[in-house]
């Protein structure tokens, strides 16, 4: 498949009209770097059947959120390859019920997500199911980066850098969510092996441009994603690229039995 270039939308405030294309103002703000111009981008397409009800691009470094209704399927496309999509999911009608790593892992008896995995809530119920997956395994261990934890991992000099926790808090605030609503998350397209002696860490990815994961919503859910801006580890190939979020109306889900 020939990768096709993807247009990155301007980061516009909803309800406002972007200014006409002019030379951007000079800034002293130390904004994080994004992908190199020669980067291969493959926007791919939905991994589930049915009409498309939403098709968004998540800019590098940025957050995203959306409601996925019961019976709909969210396809996340790793447009540039090995770009961690830090992912949280909530019961849209009761956000105190949200994705739970331990319940998901314990229910599956496995530390990774693959086709057939169920994303459990902290109340022990299934929020979404993985109905399509194009990489070997998806990370549940690594959690999100934060400015604060960056000081531990990389030194105090990295604290100013943007981080997923900032994205989660910013996007979550749109729904009245705060620090109490942030739990350990999924990292789609990030690779965190656990060695025999327990050694664990983020290593080079096993994804590629255009690789996808598809999540079927069992109930109405709120999804919050951080397109990981981390520039100190390979969770994004040190090359922050876009993500594509496609919601299709699957409705008639086939019973796996």
């Amino acid at each position: 498949m020939t990768p096709t270039p993807l247009t990155i939308p301007d980061a516009a405030v909803p309800g406002t009209t972007p200014p006409a294309a002019v030379t951007p103002p000079a800034s002293t703000v130390p904004v994080g770097a994004i992908f190199a111009p020669e980067t291969v981008l493959d926007p791919s397409g939905p991994l589930a059947e049915g009409p498309t009800v939403l098709d968004d691009t998540v800019a590098p470094l940025g957050p995203w959120s959306g409601i996925v209704r019961a019976g709909q399927t969210l396809t996340i496309v790793d447009v540039g390859g090995n770009q961690s999509a830090d992912f949280l999911v909530y019961n849209a009608n009761n956000t105190a019920e949200r994705y739970s790593v331990p319940d998901t892992l314990a229910a599956a008896g496995n530390a990774y997500l693959r086709t057939g995995s169920s994303l459990y809530s902290n109340e022990g119920r299934v929020l979404m199911r993985v109905v399509g997956n194009e990489i070997d395994r998806q990370d549940t261990i690594g959690g999100a980066c934060s400015k604060e934890s960056n000081t531990l991992r990389y030194g105090f000099h990295t604290e100013y850098q943007h981080a997923c926790r900032e994205n989660f808090l910013t996007e979550g605030a749109r729904y009245g969510l705060g620090v109490r609503d942030l739990v350990s998350n999924i990292n789609w397209f990030m690779n965190v092996p656990v060695e025999a002696d327990g050694a664990l860490g983020i290593v080079d990815g096993i994804s590629a441009p255009g690789k996808r994961v598809a999540l079927y919503a069992e109930i109405d859910v709120l999804v919050i994603v951080s397109n990981c801006p981390q520039m100190n580890n390979p969770c994004n190939d040190f090359n922050c690229t876009p993500l594509r979020m496609i919601i299709t109306d699957t409705q008639t889900e086939t019973d796996p039995a």
Binding site: I141, G142, G143, S149, L152, S184, N185, A199, L200, G201
Partner: peptide, 22 residues
């Protein structure tokens, strides 16, 4: 718990392992 295993590069709790906040 993610930082608690990620920051020390170690999945298994033992002596000198920090229980980290976010």
């Amino acid at each position: 718990t993610a930082d608690t295993v990620k920051i020390p590069w170690q999945a298994y709790l033992g002596t000198d392992h920090p229980l980290l906040s976010g």
